[in-house]
Design a protein around this nucleic acid. Structure first.
Lengths: 227, 227
DNA sequence: TAGACTGTTTATCGAATGATAAAAGAGGTC
DNA sequence: GACCTCTTTTATCATTCGATAAACAGTCTA
């Protein structure tokens, strides 16, 4: 049996540290996404084809490795252009929202993102709350204002909780596709882009009307109270 | 220190088996909902104020106890009257849907229901898929047909996947309130009933229109293909 | 090719886990 | 108050966990 040393064969003992570390991180992402944080370091090592103590050569503790896993999956995933696109009023609002969610879904609707997100929440990390607070401030408020403008509703005044909640509902419906697929193991629509377009369309036909009612009722109430 | 033997004091050693078992089950529901299935039997026992081996007097294994926990939280929670109410066409559809979701939310939007449901999914149990298949067959299809009837859409033909998906979206948005509150530890609207009413209202203004488009486009396409 | 450097494995520790067996003790009966 | 029944505790086992120390082995240089 001849062996080509430079070839990428299955037995890859003694890797460059950078390469080994990357391999561990990637394996850890897949592993902890599947088994959660209680997955054992021994089984992770077995999957990587290395021994368990080697993990501790690259990461001082299991928790440090988990931190790195989270960095790998969640850091720098937000595309700043999404906000620019959402604001581009030369494009119909429906198209803007559809494109935004099609892009956003590509980032979050995958096995690792969805499951690790849920594991983090169940473990009690504040990661989820921080992420969603960011999402609300960067996207939900923006979308709410664009909808008001597009629907001829008054744009002055802060975004109502109700508006944010309804947008959150659309977001939840989309994220739940990932929950169904990657946590419950259920089928989801095979044409994701078409599904997202349908959801956005249905949302845009109902949400502004409901918000309009809300605002009118609100201002009518104020008028009554004032008069 | 005098002691009243019949009083329900903190030290309640030697209970009736039925009573002890109930206490264990209730404690286990709260405990495993908080820590997941990997919570240790020792810590559960400590919370109950009993020793760990006593658990094994009442349940042959940890898994048997977990089975009992699931039975306690999920079995017989579905109210058959909901289906009757949803069908009652003497009541406006919006009112029917609002009342259904207000009742349903009371059952599912609590700490134990939401968290144990997610733990089960992440562990790979088929429980979630079975539950949601039931939900779809018993509620989603029914709602889809009532919406068609209410919106003047053709009622013949099977419920489209797209219709079920949009209804699933409403369901997801409502369930996600529980996820936000009990898994992410985030605030949710304080007036749940008002929030649900708003979500249903917005949904009913958008969903039928989107489905109408879909059906008309479908039949128009069929006409084109046929002609 | 001897030796150094360092990536990797073997051996092992202390703590925690689910589970079992035996001892202890509470409460009732005669 | 001796005795019996049955709930509960004490003691313990085998396994698995994260983590550490020491030995091993691959690769390059002098």
């Amino acid at each position: 049996m001849s062996r080509i040393p430079t070839a990428r064969t299955a037995d890859k003992r003694r890797l460059e540290p950078k390469e080994r570390e990357l391999e561990i991180v990637r394996g850890a992402v897949a592993f902890f996404a599947e088994f959660g944080f209680d997955g054992s370091t021994r089984e992770l090592a077995a999957r990587l084809g290395i021994t368990q103590p080697l993990l501790y050569r690259y990461f001082p503790s299991k928790e440090a490795l988990l931190d790195r896993v989270y960095e790998e999956v969640y850091v720098n995933r937000w595309n700043k252009e999404w906000e620019t696109q959402l604001r581009d009023r030369s494009v119909p609002l429906e198209d803007r929202l559809v494109r935004f969610y099609q892009g956003y879904a590509k980032v979050i609707l995958n096995y690792e993102w969805v499951r690790l997100f849920m594991f983090a929440g169940l473990k009690g990390l504040d990661f989820n709350a921080r992420y969603l607070a960011f999402l609300r401030s960067s996207a939900f408020n923006l979308i709410a204002r664009e909808i008001r403008l597009d629907s001829g509703l008054p744009v002055e005044g802060p975004v109502l909780n109700e508006e944010a909640e309804l947008i959150w509902g659309l977001h939840a419906a989309i994220f739940y596709l990932g929950v169904r697929q990657f946590i419950y193991g259920m089928p989801v629509p095979d044409d994701l882009d078409a599904d997202l377009a349908l959801r956005v369309r249905a949302f845009l036909r109902g949400m502004p009307a409901a918000v309009g009612d809300l605002i009118h009722r609100e201002s009518a109430g104020q008028a009554r109270r004032a008069g």
